[in-house]
């Protein structure tokens, strides 16, 4: 009976994952390997293709009133701009997508049984500290050693192009590629990922939590479910559960470095304005 409950939990979280995250690992891998009936992604490999590729970027539309304000505040510009301006504009688009992704992760977190019964302050803390870790994990299936899918899989941006940007833009993605290439070797599928994301969100050691016990209890149940899931789904992969959990240590360092890069950008790039939701998250984070 206990393992039936754990399987039901795995099924529930997988269904939530499919509901809230539009680009699954299965779909991303199909796009990356060319095994999809959809057209191939547009490839961005230099500044020219970045400008051309902007029409493919299917970001959430900015309301006209705010677009005017952002044009003056953030230096939103038109085709034919300098490389610096294109880089800044691309960064702003990444921020919009990241903010939308935070909303998706929040909806997923709310679907974890017991999460909404936690103290509201603790729900905020768990999301504040967990959401960038979740986003980095969710980026991994979109990446291979040569580049990454962006814009819901419509665009493939090469790793070499990202490395060619000026500092610190060029430094921001390389650690995620290094992590993702190793993480992808574990060959977790979407149903495994759903449980792992819930484990990350339910971390009882986040700073400032008021009531740790119920969070740890919830996490323990999801951990049992993940352990069972990995044993059943990957019977030949020895110690996979332990290997997956070890990745959580790498994630904390990645987030800390990422926040450092954003703070550096804020200081050095006068044209950068940070999305208010992302500001909330990284303020006093690490």
């Amino acid at each position: 009976p206990e393992s039936a409950d754990l399987r039901a939990l795995a099924k529930h979280l997988y269904e939530s994952y499919l509901k809230y995250f539009p680009l699954t690992k299965a779909k991303a891998r199909a796009i990356l390997s060319g095994k999809t009936s959809d057209s191939s992604p547009f490839v961005i490999h230099d500044m020219r293709s970045l400008s051309e590729g902007e029409q493919f970027i299917n970001c959430r539309q900015i309301p006209p009133s705010l677009a005017n304000q952002q044009q003056s505040d953030c230096g939103l510009l038109h085709p034919g701009d300098s490389a610096e301006e294109v880089e800044v504009r691309f960064f702003q688009r990444c921020q919009s997508r990241s903010a939308e992704a935070v909303r998706e992760v929040t909806e997923f977190a709310k679907s974890i049984p017991g999460f909404m019964e936690l103290d509201l302050n603790d729900q905020v803390t768990l999301l504040k500290y967990g959401v960038i870790e979740v986003l980095i994990i969710m980026m991994a299936p979109l990446m291979n050693k040569d580049g990454t899918l962006i814009a819901y899989g419509q665009i493939f941006m090469t790793r070499e192009f990202l490395k060619s940007l000026r500092k610190p833009f060029c430094q921001m993605m390389e650690p995620k590629f290094e992590f993702s290439v190793k993480f992808n070797m574990l060959e977790m599928d979407d149903s495994d990922m759903a449980l792992f994301l819930a484990v990350i969100i339910l971390s009882g050691d986040r700073p400032g939590l008021l009531n740790v016990k119920p969070i740890e209890d919830l996490q323990e149940t999801v951990l049992h479910s993940l352990e069972l899931q990995l044993k059943m789904n990957h019977p030949d992969s020895l110690q996979l559960f332990a290997k997956v959990l070890q990745k959580m240590t790498d994630l904390r360092q990645l987030v800390s470095d990422h926040v450092h890069f954003i703070q550096l950008l804020k200081k050095t790039e006068v044209d950068i304005c940070l999305h208010p939701l992302l500001q909330e998250i990284i303020r006093d984070l690490y």
Binding site: A99, V102, K110, L120, V124, T125, L127, L277, E280, I281
Partner: peptide
């Protein structure tokens, strides 16, 4: 904490909150 994280707080309370504020 809720005061310093108004958008996150709103997202937790209401799934239709737009993030492009």
């Amino acid at each position: 904490l809720k005061e310093k994280h108004k958008i996150l707080h709103r997202l937790l309370q209401n799934s239709t909150t737009p993030v492009d504020l």
